[in-house]
Design a protein around this nucleic acid. Structure first.
Lengths: 188, 188
DNA sequence: GAGAGCATGTAAGAGGTTACATGATTCC
DNA sequence: GGAATCATGTAACCTCTTACATGCTCTC
């Protein structure tokens, strides 16, 4: 369960609340490769306390809602280390865009081109977002923490760029295939 | 729901059973980008009949178990076409390997290298499998069906190759980072 | 005699999403 | 006056996975 272990990882860095896990941590880093829902985070924190991998203290606040501060336990640290060093199978790969393309014979080429163009926009937006993240390049990282972050970012950058290149190739192939079967049409 | 629409796509090609969908279709093509569980296929077929996107006839066999042959309905064809030409957001990207790398400061470098090496094996195996699939190259496809299959395969090949290149880069970075903080250790 | 192929299913559970609820304070 | 921030939660639902069950035929 990656979500559980990602939370343990953040708690290992510092004790914090479900709210800060969601807004300061996941949404700004790990969320790029393991998006986490608020509801899901709260449920998982309950489970962590129940299984004694984390502890919880309530902080009473007067001007704001009370908050529950979670800390990792000794058992939690061990479990985190165990999971981190355990090799694991990659999860099933699921991509609706490829399903659409696979059956694209059943729709007009123009429609499929639009679907691809839309996907490209998403990939590009995601790439732009990643590009705006500032982390030292691989050779200049000063800590293992920084290097880990850099390498995950690198994966994101490279795979988005590859995805965009592939979309372009696919669009070109679809466009230039058309004349063979249909009478020549002008695009755009 | 991609599974539902992928099934509609196959039924559009020809009427068939849950069994053949699983063994002849999904496991040999679409499964590479949308793996489908047997249980899930049967449940989805029920739903398709219920919502009148497909019909079902039972064929009685004496020497083998009876089989249920599903066919796409008119409404099913329309629904398939609607879905295929509808642009859609890419699904959330989730990769446990990146989570592990992100928090890799908490384990020994050697352990993380092993985790990466294991992932590399999986990627390579997947790539080998894809490489053994025979489909004409982009310029030589004779039908839209073939081109669609080729383009999805191309995505698989390119993304696996990119993943392997990235793993190599990550392993190298981890290995050459170590000397800065720890005393020099020999690897392997 | 064992195992693969054919063919369909049930039951339970894990993980994630969506919609909704509460309520004070601070900022524009 | 309205929106954002802080902070936690419930209920219902969807998709997918795992484990298990049945039973005949054909091949090695």
């Amino acid at each position: 369960m990656s979500l559980m272990h990602a939370i343990l990882g953040f708690l290992r860095r510092e004790p914090q609340t479900g709210y800060s896990l969601k807004n300061d941590q996941f949404d700004k880093s790990v969320g790029y490769f393991w998006p986490a829902d608020q509801t899901q985070i709260y449920k998982t924190l309950d489970k962590l306390v129940e299984s004694e991998l984390a502890t919880c203290e309530v902080e009473i606040q007067s001007d704001r809602p009370n908050r529950k501060i979670y800390s990792i336990s000794k058992a939690g640290k061990l479990e985190l280390e165990r999971w981190l060093s355990e090799p694991s199978d990659p999860p099933p790969y699921r991509e609706p865009l490829l399903v659409k393309l696979f059956f694209s014979e059943y729709v007009k080429t123009e429609d499929m081109l639009e679907v691809l163009a839309n996907a490209r926009l998403h990939y590009q937006a995601h790439l732009d977002e990643l590009t705006s993240i500032e982390i030292a390049p691989i050779g200049k990282c000063n800590s293992r923490e920084e290097l880990g972050a850099r390498l995950t970012l690198e994966m994101g950058l490279q795979s988005k760029r590859a995805a965009i290149a592939w979309v372009d190739q696919a669009m070109e192939a679809l466009e230039s295939f058309e004349p063979k079967n249909k009478k020549d049409k002008k695009h755009k």
